[in-house]
Write a protein that binds this DNA or RNA. Sequence first.
DNA 1: TGTAAAGTAAACTGAAGAGTGTAATATGCC
DNA 2: GGCATATTACACTCTTCAGTTTACTTTACA
Lengths: 203, 203
Amino acid sequence: MTAEVRTRSDRKRDAIIQAAKQAFQQYGVNGTSMDTLAELANVSKRTVYNHFSAKEELVMHLIKELWHKTMASIALSYDARLPLQSQLESLLLAEVELISGDEYLELARVAFGYFFYNPEKLKEEVANLSAQETVLHRWLVAARADGRLAFDNLDYVVKELSCLLKGHCFWPQLLKIEPPLDAAQRRTIATRTTALFLSHYAI
Amino acid sequence: MTAEVRTRSDRKRDAIIQAAKQAFQQYGVNGTSMDTLAELANVSKRTVYNHFSAKEELVMHLIKELWHKTMASIALSYDARLPLQSQLESLLLAEVELISGDEYLELARVAFGYFFYNPEKLKEEVANLSAQETVLHRWLVAARADGRLAFDNLDYVVKELSCLLKGHCFWPQLLKIEPPLDAAQRRTIATRTTALFLSHYAI
DNA sequence: TGTAAAGTAAACTGAAGAGTGTAATATGCC
DNA sequence: GGCATATTACACTCTTCAGTTTACTTTACA
């Protein structure tokens, strides 16, 4: 993807980040000591501190990096000529692929373990970063304007959809209560959720 | 509710439990030291250890106690004479009241923070304790047998309903991203979820 | 090949926190 | 009052961990 890692310094930095991602996601931020981390990265502890002046800095770096990678966003807009079913299904499937992807779940696990007892900080970050949750919004608004959907409360409806998706393929996986979904299961969820939704809101 | 606390020992024990519930829920198990806890309970640390031989024992005691209180279960069964809408709505409302109740959320927060990096232990406990998740199941099966609902996959459908409810009134509150819902909002969710569901599955 | 920047090992500091031991004190019941 | 039991204060051990210091080595590149 990016150019091969250049200098030794960059290679070390990368090893630290990889190890941290892996360890934080598995044992949590508090469950991973800087000594362990250095060992996992095959790097001296001092080197870790040369790259990241404190544990917190490393955590925040990770969360932001993963978040941006994750936000390589979904592009799909309403098309008046196509059936609702197929359009919405693609949209939901894309959303499902996103939130049940490893990268996303890893991010969520790290962020989660870190912010769970810092709700103020969490709210702040969430506000910053999720302001652009609008693909679904835009599609729904367009379909309504086109007279093919009827609903009064846009936000509620968006939330209904996202509850359905996340309840199936995000929360249980985040808690590791259920294994990740395979492609067929993901498609099923997109299909059935679309059907349920359109039964109620399509005109 | 229960008889007034008798002996001094019982009073102390109770103070410990109250303090732990409050502190664990607010700061997390790892964020609450036994010294702090003792202080909050107005009890010496030694007394804490006289009642609970280790922190872990206290945690497990709390989780189980809260779980049982919470499980004062919903009693409602299918009635062929009444409309589906009103029956299902009551059932969902009861479910909503349960999962957005303070006790339930407190339990969830403690358990959550504790089990987040112990998924095996979590799975085990969840399997033990949530075997009786069957009120909805039973109602849906009865309504289908009565020819008034049509669906193929019972578990999927139950999950659909519970995603909708939890996505609105459990997860966001658990993470403290959104404030607890008031009675009107809870009713709205029950009503709208019922409507969405019946549009698709009622005959 | 010389040198500056980066990395390393290992010992260290300081703080926090789980759990224990003990001797003195309070409570409640006969 | 007397006695068993629970509670208390507090000092103590042991461990873990974030972050630092130091003296030394490796790497890269000019």
